[in-house]
Simulated assay, not measured.
Amino acid sequence: MAKLKTNTRLSKRVQTIKPSGIRRFFDLASKMDNIISLGVGEPDFVTPWNVREASISSLERGFTAYSANAGIIELRKEISAYMQRRFATSYDPETEILVTVGASEAIDIGMRAILDEGDEVIIVEPSFVSYVPLVQMAGGVPVAVGTNRHDDFKVSASQIEAAITDRTKALMLCFPNNPTGATMTGEEMKEIAAVVERHDLLVFSDEIYAELSYDEKPVSFASLPNMKERTILISGFSKSFAMTGWRLGFVLASPDLLAAMLKLHQYSLMCAPTMAQYGALEALKSGMDDLERMKQSYKQRRNYIVKSFTEIGLPCHKPGGAFYAFPSIEKTGLTSEQFAEKLLLEERVAVVPGHVFGEGGEGHIRCSYATSMDNLEQSVERIDRLLKTLL
């Protein structure tokens, strides 16, 4: 009897998907001692107590059943009020808001809801590592548009327009950006919106870091003229409210788009965890003071790490949001992966090589400053020590 070839069990599509480039460094670091990690993209704060207490209370009251597929109506109403209050965008809790299992699920079902085989999605890079695979898993074709530190990692409307073809279906944006921390002004976004309208595109706007904007008030892409009906707005609670392990996000879209995403959500995940939803409800109701406290701490750390990297000879643009610095290591002559591996093995500092975020990330490393000042200070000392052996 002929032996079954292992690769015939797997779909061709899944075989083309590369494993996350971040994981290799985390796996290496997990086996080493005295590691300082600047690699994990999550707050170092514990979820505020009142949020945890609300979730515990929901369990004590026996709220352990499935919720509505779209999420508990109280949370959807609070999301609607929050978006109006903070970002001047209006969404109907009944037909335009879906609570998801993290922002990643929202992106996944959004891509699968709109893409047919071969449809193209323009992705502004460097970008979050999930965007390209999620487009591919939905049968789409990712088309990269690169940015660079000399332009503060901003993308121009003309760059986007140059990448549009007759197969372009959507544009993927993330500002404030992971991994660069770049932000865009309202006027810069309006120029992109004009291109979107001219070419009849949809826009995925990942606004998970919107509340972590340090120097300017964030602008939601959906709030721009004529953009709400074209925007699939992705957000959640992980970054702003230190709720990464709760796996709770939300997606906002016009009723027809949301209904399509809801079908995929119903059949794959049913609903987000009920007790997490009650925690998120409390976060929106009373968590803004905690959010502001965390944001001010991140801002202090951002100022320190950008200044420190510049002083030791690593050019680093000043990120306007999120909690990542993206310094250039080009002068070392090493690739981003070589530098990150050397830094980990010789100085016990874990960072993420920039190339995993797309070709435009090569020559950089992503450093999360969502860690203590003591860790940041020690990391800078260790990185400086490595640089002195290389330069």
Rank of each mutant, 00 (worst) to 15 (best):
D33Y: 00
G39D: 07
V380R: 01
D44Q: 03
S220P: 04
Y369W: 11
V121T: 04
A68T: 13
P315C: 01
E207L: 10
F339A: 11
T310E: 14
S156H: 09
K228C: 07
H199D: 02
T332M: 10
I107C: 04
D33A: 13
P225E: 10
S158M: 11
G313M: 08
L344F: 02
K77V: 10
G140N: 04
T310C: 02
K154L: 05
D92Y: 09
I109E: 08
R23F: 07
I35N: 05
R366E: 06
G140R: 02
M189N: 00
V306P: 01
I36L: 13
A193E: 04
M1R: 11
Q277A: 05
P48K: 02
Y131V: 10
P142A: 13
R230P: 07
V141S: 10
A259D: 13
W49G: 09
I232E: 06
V46N: 11
Q136P: 01
V141W: 07
G363S: 12
T371C: 14
A340D: 09
F45P: 00
M261A: 01
R301D: 09
A325G: 04
F326D: 08
H355L: 12
E347Q: 15
A253D: 05
A163P: 09
E346W: 01
G287S: 05
L345A: 12
L269M: 11
R9H: 11
L252Q: 10
L224K: 02
K295N: 10
R61I: 01
F45R: 01
I383Q: 02
S57A: 15
A65C: 01
R382N: 07
G110E: 03
F250D: 06
L98R: 07
T47V: 13
F221I: 08
K5F: 09
H364A: 05
E346V: 00
F221N: 08
E191W: 01
L376R: 05
L10E: 02
S90I: 06
F323K: 02
V145S: 12
F128S: 11
E211N: 14
I232R: 02
L75A: 13
T310Y: 00
V143S: 10
I35R: 07
R61F: 13
H199A: 02
K285C: 01
D384E: 14
T332E: 10
D289Q: 14
R382F: 07
P43D: 03
R24N: 03
E381Y: 05
H150R: 11
L376E: 03
L173F: 06
Y278I: 12
H265K: 13
Y369K: 09
F323H: 12
L134F: 15
A253G: 04
D108T: 05
K5V: 11
E347A: 03
A88C: 08
A113Y: 01
G361N: 11
I114H: 04
G140P: 04
S336P: 07
Y214P: 09
N177H: 02
I73V: 15
M172P: 00
P218G: 08
H199P: 00
R167Q: 15
Y131F: 15
G102L: 01
A103L: 01
T6D: 06
A340S: 15
L281I: 12
T231N: 14
G313N: 10
E377S: 05
V306L: 02
E60N: 11
I383V: 14
P319H: 06
A222M: 04
I17E: 03
I305R: 07
F221P: 07
A144H: 03
S286F: 12
L134K: 14
P176Y: 09
P48R: 07
S238M: 11
T64K: 10
